[in-house]
Amino acid sequence: MENFENIIEVKNLVKKFGSFVANDNLTFNVKRGEIFGFLGANGAGKTTAIKILSGLSFPTSGDVNVAGFDVYREREKVKKNIGYMSQKFSLYEDLTVRENIRFYGGIYGLSSKYIKEKTESLLERLKMTDIQDSLIKSLPLGWKQKIAFSVALFHEPKIVFLDEPTGGVDPITRRDFWEMIYETSDSGITVFVTTHYMDEAEYCDRVSIMDKGRIEGLDTPGELKKQFDAQNMDEVFIKIAR
């Protein structure tokens, strides 16, 4: 790794599905420890890009470096260092809270002693010790998402990718969730988050806005507002998407 500042380096990333270009020549860097907002309308290519960064999909061309590893050649090493929470809900509904944590910890190769200890402290922190033996399907959506986020962080990755983590939850739960994101970022983990909510964009250190497969704006929320002569992120977004 030449640049210790950048934990994700993307250069001329292109992803095509047949003749459709989902990611058109993306170039950007994400700094270690920052909260990086990845914005764009539906179908702008956010999920495609996040899948490439997390090793779920191959890029058509371009250089992609995540946590110091090439996503082409060192995919398995990339995977050890990242956490991922998809917009499609990804815990097992028919397993309990504790069983879900144990399973995901287990397939990351963590020792059972470590899993046990860490589960206790995690449950305490989430104030979920009482419901540890409840099935996931019996819990409200907001709780599930907190657990899913914690599970994505369980193996202590360097970066966590959150693909629309707050879709469909109430404003209070959303605020709680962002508290968790701040805590995560404070502990030195890079957070890469996509969202539809423009108020959430304000919480990010830096924001990139995609439209039709291209990155049309990338800076701090303050700079973007200046650049597009807008009052808030909503306006910035609308100006770009038009």
Partner: peptide, 17 residues
């Protein structure tokens, strides 16, 4: 269908495992 396979695919688990 439920999407958990994606969560498994981002882990370093090997195919044969």
């Amino acid at each position: 269908e439920i999407g958990t396979i994606e969560q498994l695919n981002v882990t370093p688990i090997k195919k044969f495992e």
